[in-house]
Computed example of a mutant assay.
Amino acid sequence: MRRTERVGIEIWRFLLLGVLTMTIAMTIWDIGTVVNADFLHHNPNRSPRDSWDMVEEAPLVMFVIALAVAALPVAVAATAAGLSRVSLGRVPVSILVTLLPICILLSFLQSAILLGGAGEPSDHIYATGRLAIFFVPMLVAFWLFGRRPSAPVSSPSDELHWEHDDPVTK
């Protein structure tokens, strides 16, 4: 496999892992909020059936929200993790520690663009703060996924001299 193909595959793997991790974390948060408000504290404004419907729909809704709200930070983090995995053979923790504030700033930028400057600046900060909670599990998943050994990158010259590596011909 060529190096450019490998970079693309690694970035797509990290991108899918990032969206999946963000979806799982946001779903757990949403279900916990519904259970806390509606079942533990008996929310009078919502029926138990509506609460169960919200719990059932949470994974799909959070997947759409993760794609819409956190696309830019997840894409940048996945690209950095994929490039570091291909170039270094692993994803070091130092890159992930550096990516956390970058993801938070990109999330702030994206929420400001999506909201179009509407509302107070504190609205953007609040939305960014809530999303920042979900970047930590994503980056931890990147680190755990990046620790597994990677296949060596072959060059075109390795493909030409394959008979020298064959134990039968030696």
Rank of each mutant, 00 (worst) to 15 (best):
L20M: 13
S111W: 06
A78K: 00
P156A: 04
L60N: 07
N36C: 04
D165M: 03
S155F: 08
E5I: 10
R49W: 15
L60M: 14
R13P: 02
E5Q: 14
A58V: 05
W29T: 14
L115E: 13
G117K: 03
T23E: 05
L88C: 02
S47N: 09
L160M: 09
G89M: 00
I9H: 10
I95K: 03
M1Y: 10
G117Y: 04
I9M: 12
P44N: 10
L17V: 13
S84D: 06
V69H: 05
S122C: 06
R3G: 08
P44S: 08
L17T: 15
C103G: 08
L100E: 06
W29K: 10
I31M: 11
F142I: 09
D50L: 13
A81L: 00
S87M: 02
F14S: 04
R6E: 14
V93M: 10
F108D: 03
V69W: 04
P156E: 04
P121D: 06
P149Q: 13
F135P: 08
I95F: 01
F63S: 14
T21W: 01
L96V: 11
A80Y: 02
E159S: 05
W12G: 09
L105Y: 00
G129Y: 12
R2P: 15
V55E: 05
T169Y: 05
E163G: 00
G18R: 06
A37C: 08
V61N: 11
F63C: 09
A151S: 12
F14R: 08
D166S: 09
D158I: 02
S155A: 12
R148C: 01
A68Y: 12
P59K: 11
A112H: 07
A58L: 02
N43G: 07
S84T: 11
L160F: 09
L83N: 00
I95E: 04
S154H: 14
L139K: 04
V61P: 04
A37I: 14
N43F: 09
H41G: 02
I28S: 01
L67S: 03
W29R: 14
L139P: 09
H42D: 15
R3D: 10
P137N: 07
